[in-house]
Amino acid sequence: MKVLGIETSCDETGVAVYDSADGIVAEALYSQIEIHERFGGVVPELASRDHAARLAPMIGNVVAEAGITLRDLDAVAYTAGPGLIGALMVGGSLAASLGYALGIPVIPVHHMEAHLLAAMLEPGPPAFPFLALLVSGGHTQLVAVSGLGDYELLGATLDDAAGEAFDKVARLLELPYPGGPALAKLAESGDPGAYALPRPLLNKGLELSFSGLKTAVLRLLERLGSAARDGGQGAQIRADIAASFQAAVVETLVNKCGLAMRSTGLERLVIAGGVGANRDLRRTLKERGQRDGYAVHYPRPALCTDNGAMIAYAGWCRRATAGTGLPRIEARPRWPLEALEPITSGAS
């Protein structure tokens, strides 16, 4: 069975073909970084415009690269939410009409479910049940995954998502857009022990909070004043701040995962979402897993950030839930993960 996956929930256009026999057979990703760079953040209208201009030709190219024609597809899956409403509508509209014209099922996919299933596309995929850390620019959640579609939210951020905190602190440090990866890069040349920054709610249950940490960095920069701006010394101070900030986020996430692993008795931890591409987080979680006796699974960085492959795969997992009637275009900017129904059949 061959499923086309379409991702347009934010600032990346992703397209892929998943073949249940061969895995991902073709994929393409276009990042809109250059479009939003001068605005310092994603401009929803411009994101939608670019998806509308790029998506249809991109699908044609990916299907050709897979060595098939559109007629060979068995289903079309698309991100129906959560995400930017206008951007979601582009992918949904094109997916619905494409599926309708080809006479094949159209499958709306939950973006965060696709993220947490992305690890299944790697060799040695995790077996159910497992704990998932969903960590991106829009989400920071700990989810107990009992099976496909069977999710229990154990904890989440009370304010900023971890990726959002990275972006905001990057802006304080006047780093180029997108801030998160730029901050992680700067942290490589800094001392993570240089500044004592708070670890909010560190040992208090499974809730997380990152806005206080961002404020602490702001206060620190105010206190340091021109010393953090000027010359080679200022550059080193900024690198030290970046490293100290990253260490605080990583320690918080790693501790919360450890706490959740202990309280649930689960044996496998799966990392998903854009911040899951952070090298420091991956390394520290791996070490902690080895120490405490649980397996840590994370997909390669390209499968952590938004992509079409995970949507195609999640669509295949949800193929049994596709309606048989005419497709409606679904776009749900807010869509809690726990609202999903467990998949009782059709899973591998």
């Binding site: 509308a52 998506l55 249809a56 409403i85 509508m89 509209s93 094109l94 009409s97 494409l98 309708y100």
Partner: peptide, 19 residues
């Protein structure tokens, strides 16, 4: 309406792509 006119555009594109 930018959001609205992209619905018609993308639906037309989907059929154009398929057929």
């Amino acid at each position: 309406s930018f959001t609205g006119l992209r619905v018609a555009t993308a639906v037309a594109q989907g059929v154009g792509l398929a057929l």
